[in-house]
Structure formats: structure tokens, C-alpha cells
Amino acid sequence: MKDTVDPYVTEDGRQIGGVLMEMKNITLRFGGVVAIKDISFDIREGEVRAIIGPNGAGKSSMLNVISGFYNPQEGEVFYKGEKRPPMRPYQVARLGIARTFQNIALFDGMSVLDNIMTGRLNHMKAGMWKQAIWKGAAEREETENREAVEKVIDFLEIQAIRKTPVGRLPYGLKKRVELARALSAEPSLLLLDEPMAGMNVEEKEDMSRFILDVNDEFGTTIALIEHDMGVVMDLSDRVVVMDYGKKIGDGTPDEVRNNQEVIDAYLGVSHD
């Protein structure tokens, strides 16, 4: 792992830039329960950063801190070099942070296309009156947004289900549609909450491919939570390992794999 923040190029030729987001001494409590205990790490531009850990380690809480859904009691979050004040989720979205959810949060009755269009919300400027008049600005804007959405549809190869209501899709495709919606926002930071949960091997392979392609093609920074160790180790540039709300490891997949504390957390250790 590089300790400096100088930009560098990975082995497979991707550009890794400076620090995009930094978490400093984050502590998050729910009443008496300490979900996250004094954790610091950073996410650099262009990298795939994974957060892993056993059940209840605090991964999802961490992702919710990054996405601004939870405000930590202690610690600071820096985004693009500036300290980020407590925010509402829509404000975070405007900063260019998009996410997917562990238990799919799509509009079931709406078509795939419309669902993905909602991801473009922050790119729509025309107000109610312009929309009502339609001709002119609003129409132009719709065309531009549709174009962006179609590029995402093409990229994720979901042309065949463009007009299908989301409720009728199988699970693996719904996950892909969710990724599409997040992507259509053209985020600078993409958060994926267990993108492979509940998938079979083939679907996992497809999803991994798409995550790598997104990172490669658009240079999108990706932070993801994942259970499947194999997937994480193959996908990510750097990994944060959490256990009981604490950070127990941080580094490249190889470093983390050989970290004794991590091995203990995953395989268990005898308490004698």
C-alpha cells in the first residue's frame, strides 16, 4: 500500500488520484450501543475501496456515515478536502455521492427506464412551470437526461428490460437496475451496499464485471460493503476490515489477508 497521497497508476493501468474522502476518528452511538468506535480511513479518487467484516461489525453503519444518513457523535468527515457539516441525504446526493441498497429500494410499479430516470433528479433544473409548458427548456432537458440514461442502459446491457416494470424482474436484474440508477446520477463517489448479496455464482461474476467496468470506464470511485471475501479480494484496491465497530485492518487485499487479527476475526479464535 502506498502511504503517500501522490497520484499513481495501478498495475492494470487505472489512475488513482488524491484523497477524495477522509474519515477522521469517527464514533457512532445508538443510545448505549457503540456501533463505530474511533475509526479513521480514507478513500482515494478512482479506487475501489471495500469495507468488510463479520455480521454486526458496523459496516452498514459506516456506509451510512459516508452517505450522510447518520451523523456521528464524534469525528469529522472530509470530502474533497473540505470538512462536511451534518447534511440531509438530498444534500449529500447533490455533492455527487450515489448509493445502492442492501435490500433493493426501487419503485416496483415503475418501468426500468423510469426508475433509472429518477437517478437523474439532480440534473433536472426545469421548474414546475417549465415542465408544464414542456416545449423548449424542459423538453431539451428530458432529451439530455434520457440520453445519459440510455448510455447507462447500454453499458449495463439491460436494453431488453427497458420497458419492463421492475416488480416483474428477477432479483439479480433488480440489483443491476439499482446500480444503473446510481450510475445515471454520474456520481463522483458510488456506494454499494452488499451488491452481491443473495446472488448465484453467475450473477456475482456479472456484477463484479460491471463494477470493474464502471470503475475503469468512467473512473468512478467506488466504496463497497461485501460479505463474499473472494469477491472483495478480487475487486478492490484497498480493504478496511471492521470487527465489533473497530477497525482491525486496512490495506491491500494481500496485506489484509495475512493480517493475524483479521484471520482471527473471520475464522474465530479460542478464548482460553
Binding site: 434520457r146 440520453e147 440510455e150 448510455k151 442502459i153 447500454d154 436494453q159 427497458r162
Partner: peptide, 11 residues
């Protein structure tokens, strides 16, 4: 007259 058409980006 049209000689070739291809659907791309939904059009």
C-alpha cells in the same frame, strides 16, 4: 431511402 437501421440507445 433508408438502407440500414440499427437500434442503439433506445432509438
Amino acid at each position: 431511402k433508408a438502407a440500414y437501421r440499427e437500434k442503439e440507445f433506445g432509438i
